[in-house]
Amino acid sequence: TETYKYDDKREAEKAAEEFRRRGITVTVEERNGTWVLESK
């Protein structure tokens, strides 16, 4: 599991889209005002 942090929800979702395009499952969730993207 890799974790990436973003200040902006849009950025996180854009990154998530890129991962999914490569066939990687990711989750995006907000933690304490930071958007956390996790690849499984």
Rank of each mutant, 00 (worst) to 15 (best):
E38Q: 10
R20T: 05
L37Y: 01
E17D: 10
R22W: 06
E11A: 11
R10A: 14
T27F: 11
A15N: 03
G23N: 03
W35Y: 08
Y4W: 13
K5R: 13
R20E: 06
R10I: 13
E17A: 09
E38T: 14
G33D: 04
N32V: 02
D8C: 07
A16F: 04
T25M: 14
E11P: 01
R21E: 08
E2F: 14
E18N: 08
N32E: 11
L37S: 01
V28E: 01
Y6K: 00
R31K: 10
G33M: 02
K14H: 08
L37R: 00
R10V: 11
R20G: 06
E13S: 03
V28R: 00
E17V: 06
A16W: 03
E11Q: 09
E17P: 00
R22G: 04
T3E: 09
E2C: 15
T34H: 15
A15V: 09
D7W: 09
Y4L: 11
E13N: 05
D7T: 15
K5I: 15
K14V: 08
E17N: 07
K14F: 08
T34D: 10
T1I: 12
G33N: 05
R21W: 03
V36T: 06
T27L: 08
A16S: 03
E30D: 08
T25S: 12
R31E: 06
E18I: 07
E18A: 10
I24P: 00
A15C: 11
R10E: 14
D7P: 10
E29H: 12
T27Y: 10
E29R: 10
V26Q: 00
Y4G: 06
T34Q: 15
E13Q: 08
E17K: 07
E2S: 11
T3W: 13
I24A: 08
E2A: 12
T3G: 10
K40E: 11
K9E: 08
R20W: 07
R20N: 06
E17Y: 05
R21Q: 09
T27S: 09
V26L: 04
E18Y: 09
R21P: 00
K9I: 09
E18W: 12
G23K: 02
T3R: 12
N32T: 03
L37I: 14
T25V: 14
A15I: 05
E18H: 07
K9H: 07
E38H: 09
R21T: 06
K14D: 07
V26A: 04
A12H: 00
K9Q: 09
F19R: 03
R22T: 04
V26F: 07
E38N: 09
K5T: 14
D7S: 12
K9D: 02
R21I: 07
N32H: 05
E29P: 00
E13L: 11
E30P: 04
A12T: 00
T25F: 14
K5G: 08
E2P: 12
R22E: 04
V36Q: 04
E38C: 14
W35G: 01
T25G: 06
D7V: 11
A16E: 03
E38R: 07
G23W: 02
G23H: 03
R31D: 06
K5S: 13
V36E: 05
R20D: 03
E11S: 12
E17I: 07
G23V: 00
T27D: 05
Y6Q: 01
N32R: 03
W35V: 03
A16I: 05
L37H: 01
E38Y: 11
Y6M: 01
S39V: 15
S39F: 15
A12M: 04
N32S: 05
N32A: 05
E11H: 06
A16T: 02
A16V: 06
W35I: 03
E2N: 13
K14G: 04
E30A: 07
R21L: 09
W35F: 08
A15R: 05
G33L: 02
T3N: 10
E17C: 10
R22Q: 09
E30H: 10
T1R: 11
K40L: 12
T1C: 15
K5P: 05
I24F: 14
V28Q: 01
V26H: 02
T3D: 08
G23R: 02
G33S: 03
R20C: 10
W35L: 03
R10G: 11
Y6P: 00
A15M: 10
K14P: 00
A15Q: 06
K14W: 08
T1W: 15
K9F: 10
Y6A: 01
A16R: 04
E2K: 13
D7Y: 13
E30S: 07
R21D: 05
K5F: 15
W35R: 02
E30F: 15
E29W: 09
D8L: 05
K40F: 13
Y6N: 01
V28I: 14
A12Q: 00
A16Q: 06
E30N: 11
I24S: 04
E18D: 10
V26T: 04
E18L: 08
A12F: 01
V26P: 01
D8T: 15
S39N: 07
R21N: 09
L37D: 01
A12Y: 01
R20H: 06
T34S: 15
E17S: 06
D7Q: 13
T34L: 13
R20L: 08
T1A: 09
E18S: 07
W35A: 01
R31I: 13
R22S: 05
D8A: 05
D7I: 10
D7E: 12
R10D: 14
K14R: 11
T25L: 13
F19P: 00
D8N: 14
T25D: 13
E18V: 06
R31L: 09
L37W: 01
G33P: 02
K40T: 13
K14N: 08
E18R: 09
I24G: 04
E2H: 14
